[in-house]
Design a protein around this nucleic acid. Structure first.
Lengths: 350, 350
DNA sequence: TGTTAGCACTCTCAACCTCAAAGTGCTAAC
DNA sequence: GTTAGCACTTTGAGGTTGAGAGTGCTAACA
C-alpha cells in the first residue's frame, strides 16, 4: 500500500504529539487540534490503516495510538521539521566553548555538558581516538628504580602518558639518550604508523630492545579510548522524562550507564563517515530496550574530535536533539579551526 | 532509663534480623527464632520500651518493628559482632591486588571494584590527595606555539600534567633551560611546599616570571582531586537491595551519584585521622535521606592512599562492609609496603 | 468512493468493599 | 516479672462497580 500525503501528515501529528505529551494520541485530538476540516471518524480509518502498516500500536482498544520504532525511523527520515536553536541556546553554546583551555579532557567534558543541558537528556561521549594523531613531542623521563615515564603530545594536544619498565642498569643519562633517539624516530608520525615504524626499527636497538618493546606496547594501548575519555553527563536528567517512573526502565538504563566499557561499546566509532546516527533500541544491538541513542561524530581540519550524543527514551525529541548536535558540531569546528588564531588574546585574562 | 542486657540483646536481634531480611521484625520471630525461653509477650513489652527510648519505630500498628537511625548507631558502636572474611573473599582481594601496575589510576579503580564486588554495594572512592606528595621529577616540555607541558611525577607515582602558556619568544632550548632550573628548585619538595618555594623564588625569575607564575598556578590545581581521581563502581548494584524498588530512593541516589563533585563532597577528606567513618543519612549533611555512607581512609608508610567506601541503604550490612574495608586496608598496606621489594619479580610476566 | 454521525463495545482506572493474615497492646492470671 | 489469651488495628489481595476514554463498525450522506 502506498502512503498518501494525508497518512503521512497524520503520522507526523501522532509522533509530534506523542513526543511532546507522552500520552497515547486519540483520533479526537488529531481531528480537533491539528487537522481541522476532517472528522475524527475519518482520522480513525487512517489510523487503523497506519496500524496495519506497522507504524502505530495501541496498548489496548481504548487507549489511543503510540508510534512504533518503525514510525520513529520514518519520522526522522522524512517527516521531521528541522528547526533552529533559540538565541539563548546558541549563546549558551558559544559561552561554554569560549573559555578554551588546551587540553582535550576539558573539551570532552564541555561538549558533553552542553549537549546534556540543551537537550535535557543524559549525554554520553567518547573523546577523539588518538590513533591517527600525529606525534608532536615524545619524551622519556627517568623516574628512578627501573621505571621511566613516556610522555606523548599529539597534534590537537591530546596527551598520553604511561610508565614503562626499563632495565635497572640504565642511568638517567642513558634514558635521556634513548629519549632523543625515540623522539627523532617517532616525531611527526601518526600513532598507528609509529607502531609499525617501531617494530621495524626494533632490530637496531640492541641492548635497549626491551625499552623499545615497552614503548611499542604503550603505543598499542593508545588505540583504545581510556576510561577518562568516555564521559557521561546528566544521568539524573532521565527523571525528567515520564518513562523513567518505571523502575524497570531505570534499571536498564543504569545498568548500561554504570560501566564506561558499556558506554564505549554503545557509542563506539563503528562508522567514521556517519555524521549523525540515530539508533532505536529493539533488542538487536547494544541499545537498551525502549531506548534511543543519537550520536554525532565530530571532526575538524581532518581530525576526529570524538563521538557525542544522548541516550534517552525512544519517545525522544529527535528534532531538538539533532539540532543541538548539529549546532555543537558547527561551534566545535569554529573553535578548533580558530584556535591558533585566537591564541594571543587568550593570555591576558587569567 | 538504663538499658538492660536483655534489651540490648533484643535490639541486636532486631537490627541483625532486619538487615538480613529487610522485613519489619515481630515479637514472634524474636522469641521463636532467636530468644528461646522467653515468650513473645515478654519480648513485646521490651520492644515497646525500646520504642519509647527511640531505638525502634513501626510503620503501623501491626507491622513489626524497624530500627531507627539511632539504633543503627548504637548497633555499630556496641552490638555489632565483628566477623572474618571468608577464604574466597580474602583470595579475591589478594588476586585483585597482585597484578600491580605502577600508576595510581589503576589502583584506585581496583580498590573501588574490590569493595563493590565483596560488599555488593555501590562503591565510591577518592584517590590520594597529592598535596603532601614529594616531587620526584619535574619537567617542562616544549610543545611549540607558546605552550609547554608541565609533567610532575611524585613519590608514590602519582602523575600530574598540564599545559601552561609560555612567552612565544621562548625557544625550545630556553624551555629546556627553564625546565632544569625548575627541577633543581622543586625536586624533593612536597607539592604544597613547592607552592611557597615558588612564590618566594618568583622575584629571581626576571623575564621568565610569567612562566613561574603559570607553574605555581598549575601546582595549585593539584591540591584538589581531579575528576579522574573520584571513582564510582557498581552503581547498578543498588538494585540488589529492595529499598531501591522505590523510585524515589533511586532518584535520590542517582542525583548524588551522577556528579563527581557531589561524590567528592560526600566522601571528601573531612578528617584524616578517622580510619573508618559511618554516616547515616538523616538530612543533616550531604548523605542522602535513608542512605548510609561508610568510608575508610587508607594510608601506608605515612602516605595517604585515599578514601574509599560504600554508599547504600540505611539498612546496610555494616558488619560485612566494615570487615571488607578493614581487610582491603590491610592488603593495601602490604601491597604498598612491599612494592619496592617486589619490583624485580614483576618484570618477566608481560 | 470518500466522509461522517452515531452507537455498541472494550478496556482502564479509581473507589469501594470484604476478608484473611499479621502483629500489637492490654488484661488477668501465674 | 512473665505469660496466655483476646480484642483491636492495619495491610494487602481479590472482587465489584461505574465513569471515562477511545475504538470499530454500520448506515447514511455528498
Amino acid at each position: 500500500m502506498k502512503m498518501s500525503d494525508r497518512k503521512k501528515k497524520i503520522l507526523q501529528i501522532v509522533v509530534d504529539e506523542y513526543i511532546h505529551s507522552a500520552v497515547p494520541v486519540s483520533s479526537k485530538v488529531i481531528a480537533e487540534k491539528h487537522l481541522q476540516g476532517v472528522s475524527s471518524a475519518t482520522v480513525r480509518n487512517e489510523l487503523a490503516s497506519l496500524e496495519e502498516l506497522g507504524y502505530l500500536t495501541q496498548f489496548h482498544t481504548s487507549g489511543g495510538r503510540v508510534p512504533s520504532p518503525q514510525a520513529y525511523r520514518f519520522y526522522i527520515e522524512e517527516l521531521m521539521q528541522r528547526g533552529n536553536l533559540s538565541e539563548s541556546d546558541l549563546d549558551y553554546i558559544e559561552s561554554a566553548f569560549s573559555e578554551r583551555s588546551g587540553d582535550v579532557e576539558h573539551l570532552i567534558k564541555s561538549v558533553s555538558k552542553v549537549i546534556s543541558d540543551l537537550t535535557d537528556y543524559t549525554s554520553v561521549g567518547i573523546g577523539p581516538h588518538a590513533d591517527e594523531e600525529t606525534i608532536r613531542n615524545l619524551t622519556l623521563l627517568p623516574c628512578g628504580e627501573g621505571r621511566a615515564l613516556l610522555v606523548i603530545v599529539t597534534g590537537t594536544r591530546i596527551l598520553r602518558d604511561s610508565f614503562i619498565d626499563i632495565p635497572e642498569s640504565m642511568a638517567d643519562a642513558d634514558v635521556e639518550n634513548a629519549s632523543r633517539v625515540l623522539a627523532k624516530l617517532f616525531e611527526g608520525k601518526a600513532l598507528s604508523e609509529a607502531r609499525t615504524v617501531g617494530e621495524e626499527a626494533l632490530a637496531e636497538f640492541g641492548q635497549y630492545r626491551q625499552v623499545m618493546r615497552e614503548v611499542i606496547d604503550a603505543l598499542k594501548t593508545y588505540s583504545r579510548p581510556r576510561d577518562e575519555d568516555v564521559v557521561l553527563t546528566g544521568a539524573d536528567k532521565i527523571f525528567n522524562h515520564p518513562e523513567y517512573e518505571d523502575i524497570e526502565n531505570v534499571k536498564n538504563f543504569l545498568t548500561v550507564i554504570s560501566s564506561k566499557d558499556k558506554i564505549a561499546e554503545l557509542i563506539g566509532d563503528d562508522n567514521d563517515e556517519i555524521q549523525i546516527s540515530v539508533r532505536i533500541g529493539s533488542g538487536e544491538d547494544d541499545v537498551p530496550e525502549d531506548c534511543s541513542v543519537v550520536t554525532a561524530t565530530y571532526a575538524a581540519g581532518g581530525k576526529n574530535l570524538g563521538t557525542y550524543g544522548v541516550i534517552g527514551p525512544m519517545r525522544m525529541d529527535y528534532t531538538k536533539v539533532i539540532t543541538v548536535l548539529e549546532n555543537v558540531g558547527k561551534a566545535l569546528e569554529e573553535l578548533v579551526g580558530g584556535r591558533i588564531k585566537d591564541k594571543k588574546d587568550n593570555k591576558d585574562h587569567e
